[in-house]
C-alpha cells in the first residue's frame, strides 16, 4: 500500500518536474511545479511529517506560486517565449552535467551506510512547536527579521522608478 502510493506520487513528481523545465509557456511551468510540490507534500505525509506537508501546500502552492503566476500575468510573458535560440552545445553540456550530477549524488547517498529505520513514532506537533519556541527561538526570530527585510526590499524594488507623474 505505502509502496504503491510512493511509486504513484514519485512518478507524478518526476513527470511534472520534467514538464516544469521543458514547457515553453511559463504559466504551464508554474502549474506543473504546483503538481510536483503537491506530490512531494504527499511524500511528506508518508514520511510522518503531515505538518510540513500542510505547510508546503499552504505556503508554497497557496502563496509563493500564486505570486509567480501573478508576475507572469502582470508582465504578460506569454508573448515572450523562445526569444533567443539556445545553443545546442549548451543543452548537451547541461544535460550531461545533470546526469553526472544525479549519478554522483545517488551513488553517494546510497553508499553511506545507515541503520534501517525502526518503527518510530512520528514527531508530534507538540514536540515540533516546543522545539521551535525553545531551542530554535533565535533562528525563528531571525527568520521573522528576514521576512520583514524581504517585504521592504520587494516593495522598494517593484516600485515604479521615482517618477513624479504617478505618485501614490
Amino acid at each position: 500500500m505505502e509502496i504503491a502510493v510512493f511509486i504513484l506520487f514519485a512518478l507524478v513528481a518526476v513527470i511534472s518536474a520534467i514538464a516544469v523545465i521543458t514547457h515553453p509557456n511559463p504559466v504551464y511551468s508554474t502549474l506543473s511545479l504546483i503538481v510536483t510540490l503537491f506530490a512531494t507534500a504527499v511524500l511528506f505525509v508518508l514520511l510522518g511529517a503531515p505538518f510540513l506537508a500542510a505547510l508546503q501546500i499552504l505556503l508554497y502552492a497557496g502563496a509563493i506560486l500564486v505570486l509567480f503566476l501573478f508576475v507572469i500575468m502582470l508582465l504578460n510573458l506569454r508573448r515572450q517565449r523562445s526569444t533567443s535560440p539556445r545553443g545546442r552545445g549548451q543543452v548537451t553540456v547541461a544535460a550531461l552535467g545533470a546526469v553526472l550530477f544525479f549519478g554522483t549524488l545517488a551513488a553517494s547517498l546510497l553508499a553511506t551506510g545507515r541503520p534501517e529505520p525502526g518503527a518510530l513514532a512520528p514527531v508530534s506537533l507538540h514536540q515540533l512547536s516546543r522545539a521551535l519556541f525553545s531551542h530554535y527561538l533565535l533562528p525563528f526570530q531571525i527568520i521573522g527579521l528576514l521576512l520583514l527585510v524581504a517585504v521592504i526590499a520587494a516593495t522598494v524594488l517593484a516600485r515604479r522608478a521615482p517618477a513624479p507623474e504617478e505618485e501614490r
Binding site: 512531494t40 549548451q90 552535467g97 547517498l109
Partner: peptide, 29 residues
Amino acid sequence: AWYLVLAALLFAIGAFGALFRRNGITVFL
C-alpha cells in the same frame, strides 16, 4: 534510500532546467 534517489533525481532535473532555460521565470522555478 528510495526517497533519497527520488530527491536526487528531482534536484538533477531542477539543475538541468536552471542551466539550459533562458526564461528568467523558468530558471527561478
